[in-house]
Nucleic acid binder design. Structure first.
Lengths: 108, 108
DNA sequence: TGGTAACCATCGCAACGCGATGCGCCAAAC
DNA sequence: GTTTGGCGCATCGCGTTGCGATGGTTACCA
């Protein structure tokens, strides 16, 4: 919800979820929904292309699972881990900035 | 900085700054830069079109200043105030969601 | 046997931030 | 007195990106 507030922050969520243990798209979506208290309920059209994009960027590697279920399992690369680190820092800074602005109080 | 993290959150910043007292584009940019500790250093191409958009949406009204300097002075409309209220709530929720996800810790 | 949930993929659109570019005014410095 | 630089606004065009729509396949249970 909320227009396109997610833009630019999706990668952070995805990478975080994968680092935390989630392995395939569907599970990532579930975990994000749960961990965000329902705030991030990402549709397929959002999550799968994003995973492809991250893979193409070299932040993720993937393989097909062997155990019956046809699912693509993702893992962070070294580059992905570094990117996650940066994204985290970037988020902290972003949040700090917004909070700073939000503390502005009317002067009239 | 940081890709396009700002997307979807710009209006909140703009409206907040105007409610806080800033009246014209240039001053808004200055205030945002200051209040965000330098994080939000918005270029012209970002700020002016956004103000036009918000005006067109009925959240702002504007008039040209009389005192020598040619500047467009913005004011929140009632609708704008309500929108700001909603945006604030939306941000709180968004932030809560991200924080929730960020608390995920590796399980391996 | 039929429905539902798990699971993945791709196309195309709309929205938006922002760089580039150009314009006009004013004050101070040279 | 002219150049410089800060103030102040506007518009065009591009690239990125989230997401809805659409269409699959497979597993499980009634």
């Amino acid at each position: 919800m909320g227009g396109e507030a997610l833009k630019g922050h999706l990668d952070l969520l995805l990478l975080t979820s994968i680092e935390a243990g989630a392995r395939h798209g569907y599970a990532i979506a579930e975990e994000l929904r749960r961990a965000s208290f329902g705030t991030f309920d990402l549709p397929d059209g959002t999550i799968y292309p994003a995973l492809h994009r991250l893979s193409e960027a070299g932040l993720l590697t993937s393989e097909w699972s062997e155990d019956g279920r046809r699912r693509r399992l993702y893992t962070l690369t070294a580059k992905g881990r570094k990117a996650l680190e940066r994204q985290r820092a970037s988020w902290e800074n972003f949040e700090r900035g917004v909070r700073g602005v939000l503390t502005l109080r009317p002067t009239r």
